[in-house]
């Protein structure tokens, strides 16, 4: 990237990929798939004290067609699984997925007849956040890691990125 702010016609030259990724990185629109306790911590993350808008991701959308970051906040049951899959499929490319908390990552301490043992059994997941529930700081950290990915590989479709990642 070349920047010239001195000359009267100040200009920036960059590559398209970099410019687009830079824009995407700071304007992730999350869809909080809030089902359980983690959703309450997501609310804390959005509220003024932790303020997710510092990272440009405050525009929470509940329509999958308008969002590019799916945050699975809570336990996914077998009953919920087909709905989660539908929502993921409705999101437009490029898209990223955060499994917030241990339930969404692995089922957590709910190893039973109703709980799906990790959201990655039905959809691909980019980032797993530890904690039950994770603190807002933890979630914000994972958001910054997603941003790093977006910067590097934002133009790669997630179907390519996720190839072979879904377990079943």
């Amino acid at each position: 990237m070349a920047v010239d702010l001195e000359s009267p016609s100040n200009y920036i030259t960059t590559r398209l990929r970099q410019a687009v990724n830079w824009g995407r990185k700071y304007s992730l629109w999350p869809l909080p798939f809030g089902v359980a306790c983690c959703a309450i911590e997501f609310m804390s993350t959005v509220s003024s004290y932790n303020d997710i808008s510092r990272f440009g991701a405050e525009l929470v959308r509940f329509s999958p067609r308008q969002s590019d970051l799916l945050i699975i906040a809570g336990t996914i049951s077998y009953k919920q699984a087909p709905i989660l899959k539908t929502i993921y499929e409705q999101m437009a490319e490029p898209k990223w997925v955060i499994a917030m908390g241990v339930c969404a990552s692995s089922g957590g301490f709910y190893n039973n007849y109703s709980t799906l043992q990790g959201a990655d059994r039905v959809i691909p997941v980019d980032m797993y956040v530890a904690g039950c529930p994770p603190t807002p700081e933890n979630l914000l950290y994972s958001l910054t890691l997603i941003q790093e990915r977006v910067e590097k590989e934002g133009l790669v479709p997630s179907s390519v990125r996720h190839a072979g990642r879904v377990q079943s």
Partner: peptide, 11 residues
């Protein structure tokens, strides 16, 4: 309901 049935009673 039942979307977040986590089997508390069975657990």
């Amino acid at each position: 309901i039942g979307y977040i049935h986590r089997c508390f009673e069975k657990e």
